[in-house]
Structures are given as C-alpha cells and as structure tokens.
C-alpha cells in the first residue's frame, strides 16, 4: 500500500516539476532587472499620487456624487492598483513567447514532453509574480505612511484582508487565462503589435485601470459584470476595503473560480487547435 502511495506521490511531483521549474527560472530571471524595479517603484508611486490627487479633487467638489464608494475606498483602490499593477494588467506580455510564435520557433518547444499551455501559463504567472514581488512592498509601505486622506488604510477586518489575498491570486489567474488568448490570437494573425494594442486599450478600461469600475455609469457596470474583466483587479480591491464583504464576497470569489476554470479549459482547447494547425503547416 505505502509503496504504491509513494510512487503516486513521486509521479505527481514528476508531473508538476517542469512547470514549477519553469516558474522558478523565469522568476529568478526577472529579478535580475534591478534598475527596472527601482524605476518601476518610483513610477508606480508617482502615478498613484497623481490619481489620488485627482480623485480627491473630484470628491472635494459639490455634493453631486450619489451611489459611489467613499473616497477612502477609491484611494485604497488606487494604491492597490499601483502596488499590484504588474500582477493584474492584461497588456503585460512575454516578448520571447510572442517571437517564438511569430518567428515559427515554437516547433522546438513542441519537442518537449510537457503540456505547452500549462508551461506557458506557468511562465506568464512567474513574470507577473516576479515583477510584482520587487515592487509591491515599497509602494504599499509608502502608501501607508502617507498622511490621511491621501494614504491608504488597512482593511476593516482580518476576514477582508484574507479574502483579498485569495481574490488577488485568483485575479492573477484570470488575467493569465485571458492573456493566453492573446498568444492564441498571435498564432492566427502572426503579427503581434496591432491587435495587441487594440485589445490592450479595451482591457485597460474594462478592468478598471483607467477609472475604477464603481465610478462608471450603472449600465456599464452591469454589462461588465457579465465578463471576466472586473474579476481580475476590481473585485480584490473592493474586497480589501470592505466594499464587498461577507456572503457577497464569498459569492464573488466563487464567480472568480468559475472564470479561472472556464478560461483555462477554453484556452487550453483553443491552444490545441492553433498548435495543431501550426504543426500541420509546418510552422
């Protein structure tokens, strides 16, 4: 019995190992860019400050704002966006992979005995995690140190804080699941620049990176709720400040899980189709 169990265990590690290894090597590779990280921290902080000042100015105006979250919620939302931007933006991409597709070098990767979709997904996740790892802490620390009303405050309770972390990680997975479609698309168009810019513009807006989704018109918020976009960044940020809490937060995280699975399966299938086409054409 126990011998069989051990073997099963080792099989599982064997299965996971290439993906974990890909994650690690990509993560370390990204950490090399020291100056890029510093520049990123300063840039992120600067943009955070610009947006915080802008929203403060809007909220400071006449009392015409009904049905919007409190200024403090929006400010925390902004700082979280700046700190975790690299985790959740859709336009971040791996130039190497795109070049592999466009240049037709993907055939080499196909020679390896691994599932290419999972391998690439692990790689994209590592890119996000690494770029974020070097940046989020300094930005958050600075944001907490800033005086009210410009600084950010901790979540209202431990539960919100924990749910935020869960939701943020799921959000990163939704982002990876969606961005994998970009690579699928690149297989079809064999040009990466044009469509990417176009989709990036829409995605930035729809994920709440330009203005927070709660500040958009109600009809647009209802429409976006049907898509995966708000489940990338908007949801975790609102869970953080307690804007969405308790059962509502649980249900929303359930929807996130649904999107992770749906995007994963459809992406995997789509990937298989374009790969087969590439192999047949001898790309």
């Amino acid at each position: 019995m126990s011998a069989v169990k051990t073997r099963n265990m080792s099989t599982i590690t064997d299965i996971v190992r290439p993906y974990a290894s890909m994650f690690r090597i990509q993560f370390i590779g990204q950490l090399q860019y020291r100056a890029a990280a510093w520049a990123g921290i300063v840039t992120q902080f600067f943009f955070g400050f610009v947006f915080v000042m802008m929203y403060s100015a809007f909220y400071g105006g006449e009392a015409g704002a009904v049905g919007v979250p409190s200024l403090q919620t929006i400010i925390s939302y902004q700082w979280l966006k700046q700190a975790f931007l690299m985790m959740v933006v859709l336009w971040s991409q791996d130039a190497d992979l795109l070049n592999q597709i466009v240049g037709g070098h993907v055939a080499y990767s196909l020679c390896r005995p691994v599932d290419l979709y999972s391998l690439w997904a692990a790689r994209l996740l590592a890119n996000r995690a690494a770029r974020c790892a070097l940046r989020f802490a300094p930005v958050l620390i600075l944001a907490f140190v800033l005086p009210a009303p410009y600084g950010m405050i901790p979540p209202p309770n431990v539960e919100s804080g924990l749910l935020f972390i869960v939701s943020l990680l799921l959000g990163a997975l939704v982002a990876v699941g969606m961005s994998m479609f970009l690579y699928v698309l690149t297989f079809v168009t064999l040009s990466s620049v044009g469509p990417r810019l176009f989709i990036g513009a829409i995605a930035d807006f729809a994920t709440g990176m330009i203005i927070p989704i709660p500040l958009m018109p109600d009809w647009l918020q209802r429409a976006l709720a049907m898509t995966p976009f708000p489940h990338i960044a908007d949801l975790p940020f609102r869970i953080y400040s307690g804007d969405i809490a308790g059962a509502a937060a649980g249900a929303a995280i359930g929807v996130q899980v649904f999107w992770v699975i749906t995007l994963g399966i459809t992406g995997w299938l789509a990937f298989r189709v374009v790969l087969r086409r590439t192999v047949v054409q001898g790309g």
Binding site: F58, G61, G64, A65, L215, P217, L220
Partner: peptide, 8 residues
Amino acid sequence: MMFDRFHT
C-alpha cells in the same frame, strides 16, 4: 464619466 458623477 467622472464629470457625469461629480459635475465639476
């Protein structure tokens, strides 16, 4: 959208 909510 921002001016829609806040006017000025």
